[in-house]
């Protein structure tokens, strides 16, 4: 494609233009052959299901789960189409509360990940070139083991008979306080959320920090900036794009997570993901489950848009 443009604007090179013109139908055919199969597959199994979900959110639930047939719906409404699920979502404050709780969980996870990832990413970026790859690999390696195993590991670490639990409770007893259960608590959920998503923060931060020109820090030092000022006024502002993209990579999956609260949380630690799972597999109210999923999608899109805007704006002067 590019060569045909170059050929068209360079009169002296007619051979290129001609050969491209001759093969234009063939090129178009190749274009279709290459992009067609993945396009059709994703249209069928990604776009269609999305559209179906939006449509389902405007339907009534079936008697035995699923969706009610369009014809056998309430005679007062138009062919079984309704805004009932949306009305229900906004009328019961419990759903709004779960959304807010999920957003706080995602925010806390993001901030803790940032606090843990930043020094590590900084250290890797400032290490000798040959040891960087190994240090990065050591960050992704545990991330390559199965997700459930990484969550399960915390069941052992935080379990009632674990060394950590005994240590914490021994300490609390010494202070004359009640012993606590670490497992099946919001704390356990938060720890596992951080554990599972930490590499998503380290990698974009490292990619950003690695590109910083060290001479900027030398210049700052020559101008009399101390270590703290060099970090706060040079490194940190320059790393904001990395912070924003890492934050989006942590925040978005945490917002939709159901497995971690399901395994490590108590009964009161439900997040949006657990609500959605419950609607689809438990109470089988699919229209309401679809509505919740659409609300989650909207939240995710807002966050992604915000992160892209912030990263773009900061990136322009970096």
């Amino acid at each position: 494609m590019r060569s045909s443009w170059a050929g068209a604007t360079t009169p002296g090179c007619s051979c290129v233009t001609e050969s491209v013109h001759k093969s234009a139908p063939a090129a178009r055919l190749t274009n279709w052959l290459v992009s067609g199969p993945p396009f059709v597959f994703l249209l069928l199994f990604f776009v269609m299901p999305g559209i179906i979900m939006v449509l389902a959110s405007f339907r009534y639930p079936g008697e035995f789960g699923g969706l009610a047939p369009l014809t056998a719906a309430d005679p007062n409404t138009l062919q079984g189409v309704t805004l009932e699920t949306y009305r229900f979502f906004f009328s019961d404050p419990i759903y709004g509360r779960v959304f807010i709780k999920s957003i706080f969980m995602a925010l806390a996870t993001t901030l803790i990940c940032l606090a843990m990832a930043y020094p590590l990413a900084l250290l890797i970026a400032r290490s000798p070139k040959k040891s960087r790859d190994l240090m990065v690999l050591l960050v992704i390696l545990p991330f390559a083991s199965n997700f459930l195993i990484r969550v399960y590991a915390w069941m052992i670490v935080l379990g009632p008979q674990s060394a950590l639990s005994r240590l914490v409770n021994g300490f609390l007893q010494g202070l004359g306080m009640e012993p606590v259960h670490l497992l099946f608590s919001p704390f356990a959920v938060l720890v596992a959320m951080v554990y599972v998503h930490l590499p998503f923060m380290v990698l974009p931060l490292y990619t950003n920090l690695e590109k910083h020109d060290p001479s900027l820090l030398d210049a700052a030092q020559d101008l009399g900036a101390n270590a703290w000022q060099r970090f706060w006024r040079v490194t940190f502002p320059l790393s904001l794009p990395g912070i924003f993209s890492g934050s989006a990579l942590v925040f978005i999956p945490v917002l939709g997570m159901f497995a971690i609260p399901d395994i490590l949380g108590g009964t009161g630690d439900m997040l949006i993901g657990n609500l959605i799972k419950e609607q689809f597999l438990g109470t089988r109210d699919w229209p309401f489950g679809s509505t919740l999923s659409i609300m989650l999608t909207i939240a995710v899109l807002l966050i992604a848009w915000l992160a892209a805007r912030l990263a773009g704006k900061r990136g322009s002067y970096a």
């Binding site: 993945p38 396009f39 994703l42 249209l43 199994f45 990604f46 776009v47 269609m48 299901p49 999305g50 179906i52 979900m53 389902a56 699923g66 969706l67 978005i252 999956p253 917002l255 939709g256 997570m257 159901f258 993901g273 959605i276 799972k277 689809f280 699919w286 489950g289 679809s290 999923s293 989650l296 999608t297 995710v300 992604a304």
Partner: peptide
């Protein structure tokens, strides 16, 4: 857009929308 979005969005959304699609459609 169609290729990159499934990578970026929460997995649960793809899971439930496929569940709906497989059974309902």
């Amino acid at each position: 857009f169609m290729v990159l979005t499934p990578v970026a969005m929460p997995e649960i959304l793809l899971g439930v929308s496929l569940l709906l699609f497989f059974i309902q459609v």
